[in-house]
Amino acid sequence: MNAFRFLGDMTHLFSVLVLLLKIYATKSCSGVSRKTQELYMVVFVARYMDLFTDYISLYNSVMKVVFITSSAAIVWCMRRHPQVRRTYDRDQDTFRHVVLVAASFVLALIFNERFTFREICWAFSIYLEAVAILPQLVLLQRSRNVDNLTGQYVLFLGAYRAFYILNWIYRYFTEGHTSRWIPWIAGLVQTALYADFFYYYFLSWKNNVKLELPA
């Protein structure tokens, strides 16, 4: 465990808590893409299946349980909670996220560490996580105004991936030059997807104006 990875995990945890807070406190999920949340739930389930088979550390197991339960809780709220589900922008959240699932799965069948069920699920979860934010970014572009909690949510999510890239660089130089192409390439793609959002977020912060994304 190094500081970059710990910071990455904490900002990731924070992004989920900010989202849960927003939904629970305001009893509203307007501006939140349910599709992105469903993709994240699939990512966590597909990646953390080793939760019951391989014990790595208490921290590792606790965080896996937290991520799976929080993403499931968010999806449940957006689908079942009587007050929250009414505020879901159904007609705005139109990204065909099934395509993302299918593409990630095909990629995982081709590019994986070993052609085993667990490795393919792991690679699938890595590829899917890289693109899972797309429905959310499209929804933000559509709804133009970004309420600050949703903005912070995306910001923390991007920061988590940026910290992980620093973590991979650190591990590469300190733990023997093991090259791990799958998470590296997927992680770079994922962080690049946030780059434009970061740019507009920074502009809105600098000019102290409400975050407006160009149409």
Binding site: D9, I56, E113, R114, W122, E175, T178, S179, R180, I182
Partner: peptide, 10 residues
Amino acid sequence: AASDNAKDEL
């Protein structure tokens, strides 16, 4: 193997 240590990350 290389892939194993990748699994210690979240």
